[in-house]
Amino acid sequence: MTIEISKEAQKTAITSIQRYFAENMDDEIGNLEAGALLGFFLKEIGPAIYNQAVADAQSRLQARVMELDIEIHEEEFQYWTQRKRK
């Protein structure tokens, strides 16, 4: 699966990479180079981040499903118990 981001996110990421290089590497990086680096990160590291996000979402959903019986549990055979209260 290819990890893709929107054009707007891509522009923002490229600008961020360029700024990072300018401030931390004492070197400038062009738009083309920053785009290539972003492409590398998306291809090489993106799947690991994506897979972890999916695992986190699965874990969260499984926890919610485990709580489902507590949240929506309804006592059975309560007709006579409720009738006695009236």
Rank of each mutant, 00 (worst) to 15 (best):
M1N: 08
T2D: 12
I3N: 03
I3C: 05
E4W: 05
E4V: 10
E4L: 08
I5E: 05
I5G: 03
I5Y: 05
S6C: 05
A9T: 14
Q10M: 14
Q10K: 15
K11L: 11
T12K: 15
T12G: 08
T12C: 10
A13Q: 05
A13R: 05
A13P: 05
T15E: 12
S16M: 13
S16P: 01
S16D: 11
I17F: 04
Q18K: 09
Q18H: 00
R19L: 07
R19K: 09
Y20D: 08
F21N: 02
F21R: 00
E23C: 03
N24K: 12
N24Y: 08
M25A: 02
M25V: 02
M25G: 00
M25R: 05
D26A: 07
D26P: 00
D27V: 00
E28H: 06
I29F: 00
I29T: 02
G30A: 04
G30T: 06
G30M: 06
N31E: 10
L32Q: 10
E33S: 02
G35M: 06
A36K: 06
L38M: 06
L38E: 01
L38D: 03
G39T: 09
G39N: 12
G39R: 05
F40N: 08
F41N: 02
L42K: 01
L42P: 01
L42E: 06
K43Y: 04
K43C: 03
E44Q: 11
E44A: 11
I45K: 02
P47F: 01
A48P: 01
I49R: 02
I49P: 03
Y50T: 00
N51T: 00
N51H: 08
A53F: 03
A53E: 08
A55G: 03
A55L: 12
A55M: 08
A55I: 00
D56G: 07
A57Q: 12
A57S: 10
A57F: 11
Q58V: 08
Q58L: 11
Q58A: 09
S59F: 10
S59K: 13
R60S: 13
L61T: 13
L61N: 14
Q62D: 15
Q62W: 09
Q62F: 11
A63P: 02
A63E: 15
A63G: 10
R64N: 13
R64Q: 14
V65Q: 13
V65F: 14
V65I: 15
M66R: 15
M66K: 15
M66S: 14
M66Q: 15
L68Y: 15
L68T: 13
L68I: 14
D69W: 12
D69H: 14
I70D: 15
I70S: 15
E71C: 12
E71S: 15
I72A: 12
H73N: 13
E74W: 05
E74C: 07
E74M: 12
E75V: 05
E75W: 08
E76Q: 14
E76A: 13
F77K: 10
F77D: 14
F77C: 04
Q78F: 06
Q78W: 01
Y79L: 09
Y79W: 09
Y79F: 12
W80M: 03
W80T: 02
T81K: 09
T81E: 13
Q82D: 08
R83E: 05
R83K: 13
K84W: 06
K84E: 09
K84D: 09
R85W: 04
R85A: 07
K86C: 00
K86R: 07
